[in-house]
């Protein structure tokens, strides 16, 4: 039986240092909630020799609100964020996406940071984060940097993090007046499932006109996608049928899915259009409420 070294640092610097050093020597994994990692270890997919638990690092567990701009620690669990009532009022789409990860029990552990770093193309919170316009702060041996969520992933299971870099927190823009976000996913069951297609929409409305829009898709390509053509089709429109249809077609065109046990290429493409329209409707409804 191989032994696993378990490190539980209390500062970001210690964590980064340990991560950087141990990654050079062997296979190191970061542990937040562990809801993906433990399953991967158990099934033999991941066989780390070092595990770094980041749950004792203060910054990674913090939630702050600076005059409407939220910063959410990477290791904050879904259930904890759910209790932050005002966050849900600002970013209902992000919250509903995060809350779809696993069961009630898993929600006590699963985090935005873990979902992002697991880098599954089907991760539920990722499209919602992209649509929100949030950025992610990472800390590494060379210091801090910020990345837009949509450029975080390199492929299935792969990120653009450099050696020793750890995700610290998510920084959300101040929510625009009359804006709203929403996330919907298609699963064969009603819960406890993995997205066959996920779609997040974030729109801002002024005088019935769409003044800003961000559309993101999950599970239809090697990474979650920001569909800029869909945004373009919506911005400036009154959400008239033609504009929505054009945006839906942009979603379909952006899909680059695979045929697998969870769905066919043609199914995923069709569903991306439907989910976009439904998520848009929900986002508009929320935006109109303020």
């Amino acid at each position: 039986m191989s032994e696993v070294k378990f490190i539980s640092p209390e500062t970001l610097e210690q964590a980064v240092d340990a991560y950087y050093k141990s990654s050079k020597e062997g296979k190191t994994k970061i542990l937040a909630g562990g809801t993906d990692l433990l399953v991967q270890i158990r099934s033999g997919i991941s066989q780390p020799d070092t595990i770094i638990d980041i749950k004792n690092i203060k910054e990674l567990k913090e939630i702050s609100n600076d005059n409407g701009s939220y910063t959410i620690g990477a290791a904050v669990a879904g259930a904890v964020l759910d209790e932050e009532e005002d966050f849900g009022n600002n970013w209902p789409g992000v919250l509903e996406a995060l809350r779809l990860i696993g069961s009630e029990q898993i929600q006590g552990r699963a985090s935005l940071g873990g979902n992002l770093c697991n880098a599954s193309p089907a991760g539920d919170s990722v499209p919602a984060l992209i649509a929100s316009g949030a950025t992610v702060k990472v800390h590494g041996p060379e210091g801090e940097r910020n990345m837009p969520i949509e450029s975080f992933h390199a492929g299935p299971g792969k990120t653009n993090l450099k050696n020793g870099e750890i995700v610290v927190n998510f920084q959300f823009p101040k929510k625009q007046k009359c804006s709203g976000d929403a996330y919907l996913r298609m699963i064969p069951r009603t819960e406890m499932d993995i997205a066959v297609v996920g779609c997040a929409v974030n729109v801002t409305i002024e005088n019935d006109k769409c003044v800003d829009a961000r559309v993101a898709l999950g599970a239809v390509a090697p990474t979650a996608l920001l569909v800029e053509d869909a945004s373009k089709a919506l911005i400036g429109s009154n959400f008239e049928k033609e504009a929505v249809e054009k945006a839906a077609l942009a979603c379909e065109a952006a899909c680059n899915p695979i045929d697998d046990k969870r769905g066919t290429i043609s199914y995923r493409k069709k569903v991306s259009k439907v989910l976009f329209k439904r998520a848009l409707e929900k986002a508009i409804e929320r935006a109109k409420k303020g």
Binding site: M186, P188, G263, T264, S266, Y267, K270, V271
Partner: peptide, 8 residues
């Protein structure tokens, strides 16, 4: 009668 089959 799974969703992809029905939709197809």
């Amino acid at each position: 009668m799974s969703p992809p089959k029905i939709l197809e």
